[in-house]
Design a protein around this nucleic acid. Sequence first.
DNA 1: TTTCGTTACGTTAGTCGTAAAGATT
DNA 2: AATCTTTACGACTAACGTAACGAAA
Lengths: 303, 303
Amino acid sequence: MWESVELREIRVFLTLAEELHFGRTAQRLGLTQSRVSQTLRQLERKMGGQLLYRTSRRVELTPFGEGFLERAGAAYGQLADALRHSHRTSGRPSGTLRLGTFEPCSAGPHLTSIISAFEAEHPDCDVEVSEITHGTDPLETLRSGAVQLMAIRLPLDAPDLAIGPVLTRERRVLAVARTHPLAGHASVTLDDVAEHRVTDCFGVPPTIMRAFVPTSTASGRALRRIERSPVKPFEVASLVARGKIVHPTVPSFADFFGQPEITYRPIADLPPLESGLVHRRSDQDPRVAAFVRAAEAVLTRAG
Amino acid sequence: MWESVELREIRVFLTLAEELHFGRTAQRLGLTQSRVSQTLRQLERKMGGQLLYRTSRRVELTPFGEGFLERAGAAYGQLADALRHSHRTSGRPSGTLRLGTFEPCSAGPHLTSIISAFEAEHPDCDVEVSEITHGTDPLETLRSGAVQLMAIRLPLDAPDLAIGPVLTRERRVLAVARTHPLAGHASVTLDDVAEHRVTDCFGVPPTIMRAFVPTSTASGRALRRIERSPVKPFEVASLVARGKIVHPTVPSFADFFGQPEITYRPIADLPPLESGLVHRRSDQDPRVAAFVRAAEAVLTRAG
DNA sequence: TTTCGTTACGTTAGTCGTAAAGATT
DNA sequence: AATCTTTACGACTAACGTAACGAAA
């Protein structure tokens, strides 16, 4: 029976317990006396006991009503607070937005100011940046909802993922050891690369891997992969430094994994490599859309 | 807008947040899918924001819904507990019943077992016994609701107060100092008392005072009050012991205020003095009625 | 006689179920 | 095609106000 109690009834009781007067209670709640009377009666029936003694002259709580007032009053207050608070903050997005970066350099030089801009615009939100460790599938991390946004290399062949603004667009360079024969060239071509060994997929999605290290040259010559492809960027850098491989990459690779023994030469016949802000197409979180908008705004301003 | 939110709607949301499925939610709540859908929509409108993202294939909380779930879920749980608890204990009286005694001896020899019997019969109740200090009006204490029951001397001329069972019925004795002339009598009369001084009202209601210490003898002879009437029983006892006054009282007076210097002589021409259990006639507290019934039962059994 | 809670009754609003439609996989 | 949400519609419940009633001071 108590399962069908409604807040309207509780509100009537609580006001009545305060006023101890049906007329004033009705006035305060915007009801008529008769409705207050009926509602209280109904609540009493549902609760299984009389809550108020009432004559035409005096209204007072029964012991049962006192107990009910104590218990339900506090709980009602909390619920009302919750409703009020949620209503106030409705519309306004709030909470934590999780952003992953796959390879730090894909974040680009503006990500920090994008986050700042977003947090400034949505004071109730905060952004949690996490670097996706190599070896885990970044797209799966995004799809599972562990992060809602990801800064990652393009292109991406995933129709369920939406690509937001481009965060970085970098020319291609070949990382080689200073002592490497190609270090002597002012610029290299993919055919030069094909003369040496390169790393294979290091735990990144195939489309990204292929964009980084193409399968073959324009002339159809296959690039030669080494046997045990490393997984982590630092391991790649180490192999480059030791002259074991050459590595087609982007200049900012040097910022994070550069070593004195490595030098970079432009690759003439590879288009620039982009990274972008990606999120689930089905993700309806307004904060995600807001973040993408903030990113677009910052990047447009930055040119 | 949130003011019109009803528990029905919150229940739908909470179940939905658990099941993430309209069909199962409807089943659990004994509703139809369509009603669940409509109710949620209505709640969302009232709360001013979307609570659940839903396609025909997936249902998930929005960030706003998550926040609402956190806040409202806990509060709803508490309110439901309150309702459940109050409903379970409805009908069954519970809480504290306050019983005052005016003069310990008016409680009589059975009050303790009456209280025990009552508490045994109503395990959710407990009785708080307080001794009303002389100098405060015991009837006012009762009328104000500070106590709901009182063990007090009869008779009582108060139509608003109901007199329950008689707790004590004691023969009258005169307290006199051992050295007092009347100590030599085997029994005394009011006319004997009129030869000496007595105390006046010691902070008790007039009717009770007159029952204790009559205004005059049967023959119309006025009793002689002393000037500064004491208020507390011990002060009376002290005056008696010192031979300043004689004091018409009851034998149990000795149990509480007896002193070696005081002796008691039966008063031949005074009827026995009663004390009874008194409560407000308008007091509809079922516990009061239950206590009175318990008292009657115990006293009947005791004879 | 006034005040105040209750009862009676008619109206409106909203809750609910059935059934069909729309969307997604 | 199957599953699941939403919309449309009609029946019915209950929330509400007006007005009359009844008890208490």
